[in-house]
Design a binder for these strands. Structure first.
Lengths: 162, 162
DNA sequence: AAATTTAGGGATATTTTATATCCATAATAT
DNA sequence: ATATTATGGATATAAAATATCCCTAAATTT
């Protein structure tokens, strides 16, 4: 069970978009080049963000993406779920119902205990991701990225931002 | 990102094995029949448990599996990892290293912040699963499964246990 | 001793998901 | 007008999940 690589991609892209001045947009092309990613496929991932309402897009030259909300209001969970979907990682096939000792047509009053526990673990994962925002990430990155690289990167980005 | 259905299978199988009297074994055939699962493929999942040292197996007629440890010492995480592997769900491709603004040959001093956060979420998931044992599951199941079904099931199982 | 039943391992097949690539379209900027 | 962009649809390839089958060695039952 491995998360799509697109999750990593859009998290990094959002970190960049979070550093963009108000009203500026950054294109798929620039984001792909900056991260060394296949442009067409990254585009699909960014479209997922757009469909989830996390980013706003605009067309034409100087078009691209910007965040739809302030970085403090965008969580890792929002972003991961936009790409990965909101479904739980544990799917209960309710195999207890196949037990030959069951009366035929017997109906369970509550979800299977196994599933409930697995879903609690899922929720713990979600809760952690819900607790970290793009603002948090930006703060960490700005502190631990060498200033030379940090500054060069945003200079590079601003040169390409519409 | 969905867990293998085998995870569900072995959790239910272990719940049954946890209810087996000391020294008795239950075969793949019986476990597959009890849960309505494909015997051959379930067998692969049980072999994973065996390789992880969670169960002990014995050959021949009246052979099969029993738990290798008391139910209180077997966690959901042990079982899930036996089937699913111990790898983290977030794989960091370190795409920050593709940033064209980086000095060539620059080496990061710590793992990427994005990865660290995703791994913390992974760890929250693991921690939850580590906190629930087969003994806990057994207690829940014995309480909420209708006694008739519960008793019939173990009668059914004991008739087939070696 | 022979026949049966089992776990284990290897090979292979099928289906589904992830990872792309390509193209047509409509909107926007220069 | 021309160039550039996001979007959506179609298609292709690679990898993983979900099996199935067969063989072997060990243990049990007869």
């Amino acid at each position: 069970m491995i998360l799509k690589s697109q999750v990593e991609w859009v998290l990094h892209c959002c970190a960049i978009l979070a550093g963009l001045p108000d009203g500026r947009y950054l294109s798929t092309k620039a984001l792909a080049e900056l991260h060394g990613l296949p442009k067409e496929y990254l585009s699909k991932a960014l479209q997922s963000l757009s469909q989830a309402g996390l980013v706003h897009s605009t067309l034409g030259p100087s078009g691209g993406y910007r965040l739809a909300r302030p970085p403090a209001e965008l969580t890792f969970l929002d972003i991961a779920e936009a790409v990965e979907g909101k479904a739980r990682t544990f799917v209960c096939a309710n195999i207890r119902a196949n037990n030959p000792c069951r009366p035929k047509g017997y109906c369970d009053s509550s979800p299977c205990a196994v599933a409930r526990i697995m879903w609690e673990a899922d929720e713990a994962w979600r809760q952690k991701l819900r607790s970290v925002t793009l603002a948090d990430l930006g703060e960490i990155l700005s502190q631990e990225t060498p200033p030379a690289i940090w500054n060069d990167t945003f200079e590079w980005v601003l040169k390409r931002a519409g």
